[in-house]
Design a protein around this nucleic acid. Structure first.
Lengths: 544, 544
DNA sequence: TTGTCTCCCACCGGGAGACAA
DNA sequence: TTGTCTCCCGGTGGGAGACAA
């Protein structure tokens, strides 16, 4: 059976959204409310065709509709299929008549803290006998603390899934050597969710103690083949009708997007930037993919053909570049890509420079291949019975990628036109200042990603903030507030200002530029995801 | 999940079709190849709406399309949903331009024999402990004989379902008192098919020993809600597009029909006849429904309103009659019906007569209410160890309905314009003659439905044929052949002719008129269906 | 630290007759 | 004849430590 059903509304709190985004993976580009996007009917058809078994061949659109339609996002609903736990987004699009962005209602996007972990399930985890082994780190950081004075400490974990259905797990600390295990309740979960080894389990715990669980299936065969009643022809008609309607009447219409499938709703600027790139035959390009265990992998290739227009869509840029990939890969890769999906690799510094000037979002890449974040956890991570909720216990989780290249932060910084942190200038200092407004230029500086020194009001305090684990300005401010025990004063911004300053002295106020949307993703040596973000165990002490 | 999938082709033998028809129930009017029908887009929308959860309210069709479209049936495929066992028919329709019937390829519709039973499952049948109790009659007549010399006779029954999947049941005769039980394998079947008490189990056994099993769900909540991705709007568009296309281009199109839902493909003559009826306010009418346990029940009512046209469809006769039912019923009944769904009850004999003249398909009804076939099984039905495959053992299964009114045969006979067998003339003689062609008018006559005398070549032999258990002429000829041990001579028709003759001496040759399509259905005191048709135990001896 | 194995035993569910409707 | 009950017992599967990677 193949049911779509919206999740129960009560569950759609911030945790629900966070879980949804974790399940969607880091490469899924969820648009924001009010965002200016391009809708590609051609990509929409391609998207839906992935879910039909009957291949009737390419159907020529009857009507002369544009290959892309500029729209504003007027609604986003994060949903989940009832029986498969597959997630999808219902996105409402309004074709925009006038240029420019919509006025976005500045919803009070409250800042919530949570912790989460994901684990790729082992054969034992899904085996008939026994339960689910929780990594010690995950248990310590994401589960309520057990009463270790007991001989075999036990508690019941209650967590809802995306449907709002409640699951109960017995969390026990036993065995020789001792370990954290989910026993009673786990088997039912595995059976109900039809989990197999290689699938992933996601556990989230919010600041109020509320817990959510989710699943991410390993890239297996697409099991959601649509009913034959809903023919390919019908889907085509539906899409063409929507697109026609959109261009003619400028009425809102809904599209349904699934992660790990054709992304036919793309940010307007991203499309424009991508098309501005001068791709030629033999251009070297790079594209990001989701590899095994949700790690982002980058593949380089060469453009071998450029289709000026599709046979059926006039002047379509959708997958108009044919690419030959440099190396074979275990993941499926398309041979035709769209300009905005890839980055141009500059063969000469000359071209690199022009590309940088033309497209501020592109950046030079030092090394092509897997560029994963390797966590360098300190020994102090072992948390004992002591309270972890005081500023004194706040410490740093330092992540550094294999190349020393601060990927996520550079994305963010580059969008602010601040010089790139890359291998070539990894020793530059990037300062973030929190200045008391009454005072002048005494700054506290933060060592970002283990690169910079840390000061506050001129006093070096040797603490760092990992931007990669933060989701936005409010979150950052929260962290800083807690870091210095400012008791919320930073939030009001009456007494403090937060300034970013690079090594050349250029400054920018926090909030001047949008925090880029991204689902953070850290891959570890065993490729399990881990995110550290919560209230109780948020930031741990680091000895400098 | 909600998958449609065509059954494996190998299973689509005659038994598959018979099982499908049994599951569809007696009221489902499956069209025939080449049949002239009316397609009602309005009814199609209503049909599909029954499977959508979102009620967006009535959507006004944009285009001006006719409320009914005359078509020929060019293909019929009997299908089954993969996970629910719900059956549906894919019917290909060709809008007909010229009047008249299509030339129907006279496919060699081979005559096959089979036996079957259905049982409404008791709480014990689906309970955790134990198996499925088979009624003794069903076991004796439909299952291979057990070796009763054993202390606990046992055999394995292997049967395929509509998907071609093979199920194995241990058939054992045990207990005190002894009874036939399916044990091993039954529980798995119940679990897999998600059967609950009240659902029905169907077992079919063909002449070659092949067995099929099926399920009929009790009228429960419709569980097949379509995906929200497939919106109501999309379905409407699809139907309107199909209908538009049909009227404009005269191209073939497919529709999917489900039993026990709006019948939007209706025989052309049935529609015309229905519309020819002069329905007025306060007209008394009768309509057939499927009651509990698939028994046909008849409900009488009064027309309280006639809509001359629908708001959205011009001159639509679809459900244009509003009915107030005389008595409350446990089954859901529509308050709006279409003329061809109901029969006009004549308040005066005058009107009755005119109705009969106008519409040869209508007939007077003696009694409103349940008119079920009550089997009058003879004691000789107890089959022992003796061979049952010889003509000597052939006997009669006599069915007679509660009113003495030979329902099925009268349908058939009336369509041949031979005087009605009804309560008023139940003592009339209806003769079927098998004449050796070389001889003249010495006839053998058969007592039909226990009314007539039996002769052959002028010799009374006191045997009868129950037309209600036969599916066509070939089947009839088979039975007669076996009845008189003619060793296939009847089939060649070289030496014999088969003639129907009524009490006024009117004759008709067998084969002159199409055997009416019908799924035979006999309801018993416990309302379980039973059909007696097989080879091994086909017709049993009757002492006259 | 964590994956896998095997052992153990409680419990579930299939299969039987008892008994009554 | 057939529906329901209870009893019985064997297999399954959840839960435990052992042990190795």
């Amino acid at each position: 059976m193949f049911f779509f059903c919206s999740a129960i509304d009560e569950t759609k709190n911030y945790l629900y959204n966070e879980l949804w985004k974790i399940c969607a993976g880091p490469l899924f580009d969820l648009p924001k409310y009010g965002e200016n996007i391009y809708y590609f009917p051609q990509g929409h058809i391609e998207h839906l065709e992935a879910y039909t078994k009957d291949d009737l061949g390419q159907i020529r659109p009857i009507f002369d509709i544009p290959s892309k339609i500029r729209c504003n996002v007027t609604d986003i609903q994060l949903k989940v299929e009832n029986n498969t736990d597959n997630i999808y987004a219902k996105i409402t699009l309004l074709p925009n008549i006038a240029e420019g962005e919509m006025l976005i209602p500045n919803g009070n996007q409250e800042n919530h803290n949570f912790v989460y972990f994901t684990k790729v399930l082992s054969a034992s985890d899904v085996s008939m006998h026994g339960g689910f082994t929780i990594f010690k780190r995950h248990a310590v950081e994401c589960l309520p603390l057990l009463d270790m004075s007991q001989p075999t400490p036990t508690q019941e974990i209650v967590a809802k899934d995306l449907h709002g259905y409640e699951w109960r797990f017995k969390h026990i600390f036993r065995g020789t050597p001792q370990r954290h295990i989910f026993t009673t309740g786990w088997s039912a979960f595995v059976t109900a969710k039809k989990l197999v080894a290689g699938d992933s389990f996601v556990f989230l715990r919010g600041e109020n103690g509320e817990s959510l669980v989710g699943t991410i299936r390993a890239a297996r065969k697409q099991s959601n083949i649509l009913s034959s009643v809903i023919s390919k022809q019908c889907m085509h008609n539906r899409i063409i009708a929507s697109a026609l309607n959109a261009t003619n009447t400028k009425c809102m219409f809904d599209v349904f997007c699934k992660p790990r499938s054709s992304q036919f709703v793309v940010n307007f600027n991203k499309v424009i930037d991508g098309m501005n790139n001068k791709f030629n035959i033999d251009s070297k390009i790079m594209m990001r993919f989701e590899g095994k265990d949700f790690a982002e992998i980058r593949c380089s290739g060469t453009i071998v053909k450029i289709h000026d227009f599709s046979s059926y869509w006039r002047n379509s840029e959708w997958r108009n570049l044919e690419v030959k990939w440099d190396k074979p890969a275990s993941i499926p890769r398309p041979d035709k890509v769209s300009p905005w999906e890839i980055e141009l690799l500059a063969p000469t510094s000359n071209v690199t420079h022009s590309a940088l000037l033309k497209n501020k979002r592109s950046r030079p890449i030092d090394e092509i291949g897997v560029s994963m974040w390797i966590p360098t956890l300190t020994q102090s991570q072992e948390i004992g019975q002591s309270s972890v909720n005081s500023p004194e216990n706040i410490s740093k989780l330092s992540y550094r990628d294999a190349t020393g290249y601060s990927k996520n932060s550079s994305d963010w910084l580059m969008s602010n036109s601040i010089p790139t942190i890359s291998k070539s200038n990894e020793n530059n200092q990037m300062l973030m200042s929190i200045n008391k407004k009454t005072t002048t230029d005494t700054t506290c500086s933060y060592k970002l990603f283990g690169v910079d020194l840390v000061q506050m009001q001129g006093v070096a305090i040797g603490r760092a903030v990992d931007l990669t684990i933060l989701d936005g300005y409010n979150h950052l401010i929260d962290e800083l507030d807690k870091l210095f025990d400012l008791k919320g004063e930073l939030h009001t911004r009456n007494q403090w200002e937060i300034v970013f300053k690079d090594d050349k002295g250029d400054k920018m106020l926090v909030g001047d530029d949008p925090w880029p949307y991204r689902v953070l993703q850290h891959s570890e040596e065993n490729s399990n995801m881990f995110k550290r973000n919560g209230q109780d165990h948020k930031i741990k002490e680091q000895n400098l």
